[in-house]
Nucleic acid binder design. Structure first.
Length: 355
DNA sequence: AATTCGGGGGG
DNA sequence: CCCCCAGAATT
């Protein structure tokens, strides 16, 4: 059925129009300075679910700090997490470092060119594998992300639900048919660049589009209806009381999250789940969980923090304790000025102003 | 196939 | 305020 769709599609003309536009309009992005496979890799991991403008400063700092696989392989995981702070999806950082260690240990520090070897590394899925192989190694592999699915769904009028795994495979098959074998690096990046700058989700700027003559959706005026995608279900709201607990040495209590699950290995102020704990029982709950006697003071503010699948509704309180000795390594009293050494989720970074 | 993982930006 | 964006791992 791919052949049928592409029967009257001018592949050479499409490639030429797309690539010409890309050469003239591509943004000057830090990870486009060269084809260093490690840098391409770092950029692609950071760009997963994340906008270019957000990634740029993180990428610069990260490469300054970890210029090659060797520095990253040797780094303290906590420092890597700190470098990732605010970027989200923190397992990306952990997986990246683990995979880089694997590259140093198994592949002599060279990022594998082999499709299977590369795809076996932690955090490298079908998209990232294709991106690295094409951008760093000039291999004609598809790199199908949301941009590419949006652009191709419009150009070829593909009315399938892009949320389905099966459909993503279909897009990869189409890209294999139309990719420029001469310059797959530019071809894949051009599709994504077009998706980011012209063929945008809400109101695509079709009049200026370099490939509108090749676009079935444009011809039929249905570009706004594509791609087709099922809606996500709405998130569950979870209320917490967050306690900024200060001891007599002006230190605040922070704790380290478990090494798996939400915000794994990040630090934060103690959170009391209000669905399970009555307001009047907060101090008792804290004593049971942390072994610390606290006095709850005034409410400082509220914060709503939205994740992909849940919402934290946070009430922030001042609290005080006479205790200051803690046994656990995941639970520490720390001076305000030292808190910046720990990786925090953005929601808790926003509470620092109350300290 | 469905769910779990962050956070920023737009309307 | 709600809605949109969207890769990989896990189950």
């Amino acid at each position: 059925m791919i052949e049928k769709t592409l029967q009257h599609f001018n592949i050479d003309g499409f490639q030429q129009d797309l690539l010409t536009w890309y050469q003239a309009n591509k943004r000057d992005l830090p990870w486009r300075a060269d084809q260093d496979p490690y840098r391409v890799w770092v950029s692609e991991i950071m760009l997963q679910q994340t906008k270019v403008d957000t990634v740029i400063p993180y990428f610069q700092r990260f490469i300054d700090k970890y210029p090659t696989v060797y520095e990253l392989a040797d780094a303290d995981p906590q420092d890597v997490l700190k470098a990732w702070e605010g970027l989200g999806y923190y397992s990306r950082a952990r997986n990246l470092q683990n995979a880089v260690k694997e590259v140093v240990a198994t592949y002599g520090g060279k990022v594998p060119k082999d499709r299977e070897e590369l795809g076996a590394l932690k955090g490298i899925g079908p998209y990232t594998r294709g991106a690295i192989l094409s951008i760093a190694y000039d291999q004609p592999e598809p790199a199908v992300d949301g941009n590419v699915m949006r652009v191709i769904s419009r150009v070829l009028k593909i009315e399938e639900n892009i949320a389905e795994q099966r459909v993503k495979k279909l897009f990869e098959a189409y890209v294999r048919e139309i990719i420029s074998v001469n310059d797959p690096a530019s071809f894949n990046q051009a599709l994504m660049e077009l998706g980011a700058l012209v063929c945008t989700p809400k109101s695509p700027d079709c009049p200026v589009c370099p490939i509108k003559e090749h676009c079935t959706a444009y011809r039929e005026g249905i570009q706004q209806e594509l791609p087709i995608k099922t809606k996500a279900k709405k998130q569950k709201r979870i209320p917490y009381a967050v306690l900024l607990i200060k001891n007599q040495k002006e230190e605040y209590l922070i704790e380290k999250r478990p090494d798996s699950g939400l915000l794994a290995n990040l630090w934060h102020f103690p959170m009391v789940p209000l669905e399970e704990v009555e307001f009047d029982e907060i101090a008792n709950w804290i004593f049971r969980e942390y072994g610390i006697r606290v006095t709850l003071h005034d409410k400082l503010g509220e914060l709503k923090h939205v994740f992909t699948h849940l919402i934290w509704q946070l009430d922030i309180y001042n609290a005080e304790t006479d205790d200051s000795n803690i046994k656990h390594s995941e639970l520490i009293f720390e001076e305000k000025r030292n808190l910046k050494a720990y990786p925090f989720p953005v929601s808790h970074l926003k509470m620092m102003k109350y300290l």
